[in-house]
Design a protein around this nucleic acid. Structure first.
Length: 604
DNA sequence: TCTGGGGTCCTGAACCAT
DNA sequence: TCTGATGGTTCAGGACCC
């Protein structure tokens, strides 16, 4: 806690939605909701226009659709947000070397360490200048909080939203905090909030009055003491520029619960591969392998195992994850699986165990040396013969549910060899062919592997033809549902939807899993999946370039058509045109810079 | 009517070593 | 040799944050 309000907290307003609105003029002033569009998706960010309907972050997408049916629904494009974030963080670093990013859209800055402010007046001036600079560089607004501590600066920026600045003068904090809800304080979530409410404590003032001993009794030592100090406005935490990563994990929620044990094992292996890929990208190895399982009833359990030394070998992580899975009862179904590594080190010990496993694995198709960092497909060769594409998706899809397991595919003797999860009873990601196809060709996924975006392929028909009605006049006030993934029948996300757990005909099934990947532009499917016609799929909201009409973005697609709105960040709302999905003049493209020719242009 | 993904931190139990 | 205190590590679960 310092005597002058020289700790700044910046929070960009409805960041993802604002970036989308900035890059798509026709969405400005309209309700925009960014998040996972699958049946189990949740809202990542809602524009302020959508919030007026009661939509907020973390709300199930189905609920958001009911509250705000005319909103535009978009998949997150993390690459673009990251590029914009880098511009903003660059501006913060011009203020001070002590910048602590909390996420893509939020950071603390120590203005004193940067020598730009030692009193209220200078801090306020720096904050106002920053807001103006961000607007000029990105076209976006952010809210700034200034105070003598991190906690208060964050409270201030929250109070300043949207597009404001609030400075809390040291000495006034208790008075300011007293009437606020306990939920204002960091560390008080739904559970603690409810706990306090039952004790008759709803405001920060009442929290301070309760006293430290009472809070410790209710919430435990660490939490109780911390909360009491916060209630008094006391917070000595310093702004920390560099934070060490403590763990790396990946997880997937499935559109339909998994029951088949073979399929569950296969998914755990895939997750282990992806996790190791991420681990290596971050330059780490780790000792503790964690398996996370969320069951059909939403109960979540974790199992972990600590190795003798740190590893980044895919075979070791796979083995450990598989062992941990053996101790978990999955009867009833599994909705989420995750694999993580903690106890990180920035080096790898000579791991004889890994070498031994690798030697064993060679014969069974295990990647002996672990992942090759240069390998675009971190999964390496299909280890157990379960990859639907590599194992021959065509037969799998056509056989459908309850089919006799297909001919042996993959490594003989490997777990599950010859069993085909796609043809099995689970039905999640029914048409695995196209999914696998995308995995085999990461270049088709501009935003990286599934799971990084909060979305995963959905059995939904996806890419419905919301805009397949042909040209729409520029500036039309047609509901901004443009980017919505409407089914061909008009029902969101239901075009060609195979029923849960059932595979449909060849072509439909390909369409089913051709649903948009994270920020995906065109996703060629069919050719590598070996199923149906070669047809390009266009992700809702993704950027495209047309040889005649120039830059635009995909409003929707389906039944062989893709609808594109031709506009760019600097333009007015553009015209909508519909093309055949295989129109040779239409190609995926990189996002355009939101302002001028900034670095966002490079984002893909 | 449902509940994502990637994290961090804390607590308590069990176990082991000193 | 036994007992109790203490402290570190591992493991599992839970709350919280963006």
């Amino acid at each position: 806690m310092r005597a002058a309000p020289t700790i700044l907290h910046l929070d960009m307003d409805a960041f993802y939605a604002s970036v989308e609105q900035a890059s798509k003029p026709s969405l400005r002033g309209k309700a925009v909701i960014v998040g996972g569009l699958g049946p189990r998706g949740v809202v990542a960010t809602a524009s302020y226009e959508a919030r007026r309907f009661g939509v907020h972050s973390a709300m199930p997408m189905a609920q958001a659709r009911r509250l705000c049916p005319n909103s535009a629904y978009l998949i997150p494009r993390f690459r673009l947000y990251q590029a914009v974030s880098e511009i903003v963080m660059g501006l913060l670093r011009e203020l001070s070397p002590l910048v602590e990013p909390l996420s893509l859209d939020e950071a603390f800055v120590d203005l004193e360490a940067g020598g730009v402010a030692f009193d209220s007046a200078a801090a306020r001036a720096a904050g106002e200048r920053l807001r103006a600079d961000i607007l000029a560089a990105t076209g976006l607004s952010g809210s700034v909080g200034l105070a003598g501590s991190k906690m208060l600066a964050k409270v201030a920026s929250e109070e300043a939203k949207p597009a404001g600045l609030l400075l809390i003068e040291p000495g006034t904090e208790r008075e300011l905090l007293a009437p606020m809800s306990v939920r204002t304080l960091p560390g008080v979530g739904p559970v603690t909030g409810q706990h306090l409410r039952r004790a008759g404590i709803t405001t920060v003032g009442e929290l301070a009055e309760a006293g430290e001993d009472e809070l410790v009794r209710m919430l435990g030592r660490s939490h109780g003491v911390g909360l009491y100090r916060m209630a008094l406005g006391l917070d000595d935490r310093a702004v920390v520029a560099e934070r060490d990563t403590k763990s790396v994990s990946v997880e997937d929620t499935f559109d339909v619960d998994l029951h088949d044990r073979v399929r569950i094992r296969y998914e755990v292996q895939r997750l282990a591969d992806r996790c190791v890929g991420r681990l290596r990208d971050s330059g780490h190895s780790g000792r503790t392998i964690v398996l996370k399982v969320r069951r059909y009833d939403f109960s979540t359990l974790t199992r972990s195992e600590t190795l003798r030394g740190p590893t980044d070998a895919v075979a070791v992580v796979r083995e450990a994850a598989a062992r941990l899975l053996e101790s978990v009862d999955t009867t009833g179904g599994v909705r989420l699986l995750g694999v993580g590594v903690s106890g990180l080190a920035d080096y790898t010990q000579e791991d004889l165990f890994a070498f031994a496993l690798a030697a064993e694995g060679e014969g069974a198709g295990l990647d002996p040396a672990g992942l090759d960092p240069a390998d675009p497909d971190p999964a390496g060769p299909d280890p157990v013969g379960l990859d639907p594409v590599r194992a021959g998706a065509e037969g799998a899809v056509e056989r459908g549910p309850g089919a006799v397991p297909g001919a042996p595919a993959g490594a003989a003797g490997a777990p599950g060899a010859g069993l085909d999860p796609v043809g099995g009873v689970d039905g999640a990601r029914v048409a695995g062919g196209a999914v696998g196809a995308a995995e085999a060709d990461p270049s088709a996924l501009p935003d990286g592997p599934a799971g990084t975006s909060g979305t995963r392929p959905s059995p939904d028909g996806g890419m419905g033809a919301a805009g397949a009605d042909g040209d729409v006049e520029a500036g039309s006030d047609r509901p901004a549902a443009a980017a919505e993934v409407h089914g061909a029948d008009g029902a969101p996300g239901s075009a060609g939807t195979p029923g849960a757990g059932e595979a449909r005909g060849t072509v439909d099934s390909v369409g089913a899993s051709g649903a948009p990947r994270a920020g995906g532009a065109a996703e060629p499917v069919g050719a590598s999946g070996g199923v149906g016609v070669a047809e390009r799929r266009w992700g809702a909201g993704s950027d495209v370039w047309h040889a005649v009409y120039g830059a635009g973005w995909v409003q929707g697609s389906g039944v062989g058509r893709v609808t594109v709105r031709f506009e760019r960040p600097g333009s007015g709302p553009g015209r909508v045109r519909t093309f055949r999905v295989d129109d040779p003049e239409l190609a995926p493209s990189d996002p355009l810079p939101l302002v001028g020719d900034g670095p966002a242009a490079a984002a893909g």
